[in-house]
């Protein structure tokens, strides 16, 4: 018995894999729910109700999905080119704090139509800067970016923590470490009135399509794919490896920084060190679940958001720990990785 690469991957297989992976994960998590002493089907029903049962919960789920789409895209774009950007979390925070700083210190008073696009650009730029540093280290000294991007997450978080306890501290916050709020003119317009759902979701959709088009249609997309699949071959074909990776880093870091920006401008209004429940890291999971496909990222982000928001509801009504959401998402990632393996290989006797 041995594993062999499949010659042809049918479209059906590629689509069926994540679906099966999710079902498989739900079945496995069901065992845990049963062990916790709750009826399994009911628990899953509660998750669905928790995620979509009311206008509030549905908008909350979509609000959760918005930054996940962006961090998921950030990871997907980078991984495609074999640039292992594990630093989405740090880029998210740096994007967020830059927006808060720019809005409260520099741009306050500008009209919304000017200020919002400028701030989004500032957030993206901050994420880019934070990713260009590790890329520079890799290109000039062959320093492994997995390590550097990962460690920079902590650096970024501590830096944010320093700022919001120092120069950017909000004097009106009763001593809590939180940044000065973004100007009212910088708050992202809502998609639905009386909800937290903001246009960040639309930005995510649009960028997912844009990234998809860039990857599949443009010279840069083809070159970055070549660079990721086979650097030696890419160099021989004249792909400028360094320049391509710099562009990839700009897109990836920019998306993660943008995620931080929309979270500040759309939801919280100011920065704290718990602004992100791990959006940067979850983005990696989302990207892998989507098999690095930008359109798949949207679906994977929605699934992840459903699990997290839904599990809150379930936990409240049935007394099961919310960790079940973490477990399910992790299990679906594992199932997905196994599933992806089998879309690429088959067992042969």
């Amino acid at each position: 018995m041995r594993f062999e690469r499949r010659e042809h991957r049918s479209v059906a297989l590629v689509i069926a894999t994540p679906v099966l992976a999710v079902l498989c994960a739900l079945a496995l998590a069901g065992i845990l729910i049963a062990i916790a002493g709750a009826p399994v089907m009911e628990a899953y029903w509660r998750i669905l109700v928790g995620a979509f049962g009311s206008r509030l919960s549905a908008t909350e789920t979509l609000t959760r999905a918005s930054p996940l789409i962006l961090t998921g895209l950030a990871a997907a774009v980078a991984f495609r080119a074999r640039l292992w950007n594990i630093g989405g979390e740090g880029q998210f925070y740096l994007g967020a704090i830059s927006v808060a700083a720019a809005s409260s210190q520099l741009l306050a008073g500008l009209p919304s139509a000017v200020q919002i696009p400028l701030l989004l650009a500032v957030g993206a730029a901050a994420g880019i800067v934070l990713l260009l540093v590790p890329l520079w280290l890799r290109l000039s000294f062959s320093v492994d970016e997995v390590v550097t991007t990962l460690l920079l997450n902590f650096v970024a978080l501590l830096f944010v923590s320093m700022l919001i306890d120092g120069v950017l501290k909000d004097p009106m916050a009763f001593g809590w470490p939180q940044s000065q709020p973004v100007a009212d003119d910088a708050v992202l317009p809502k998609l639905l009135a009386r909800s937290r759902l903001h246009i960040g979701l639309g930005i995510g959709f649009v960028l997912a399509v844009a990234v998809h088009l860039v990857q599949s249609r443009t010279v840069f997309g083809m070159q970055s794919r070549a660079a990721g699949l086979n650097p030696a071959g890419a160099v021989f074909a004249g792909v400028p490896l360094g320049r391509t990776l710099v562009k990839v880093a700009c897109i990836s870091g920019g998306l993660a920084g943008l995620a931080g920006a929309i979270e500040v401008m759309g939801v919280q209004g100011y920065v704290t060190t718990d602004l992100s429940p791990g959006y940067g890291y979850s983005g990696i999971v989302v990207a892998m679940l989507a098999n690095l496909n930008p359109l798949g990222v949207v679906l994977a982000a929605l699934f992840t958001a459903v699990m997290f928001v839904g599990a809150d509801g379930m936990s409240r009504s049935m007394g099961i720990p919310t960790y079940i959401a973490d477990v399910t998402v992790s299990l679906s990632l594992i199932s997905m990785l196994v599933g992806v393996f089998f879309t690429q290989y088959r067992i042969r006797r």
């Binding site: 086979n230 890419a234 021989f236 074909a237 792909v239």
Partner: peptide
Amino acid sequence: NNEGAIGEMAIWENAILE
């Protein structure tokens, strides 16, 4: 295999990459 072609890319992509 390493320099001449990128195995995971289509024949047409390898034909025009350079």
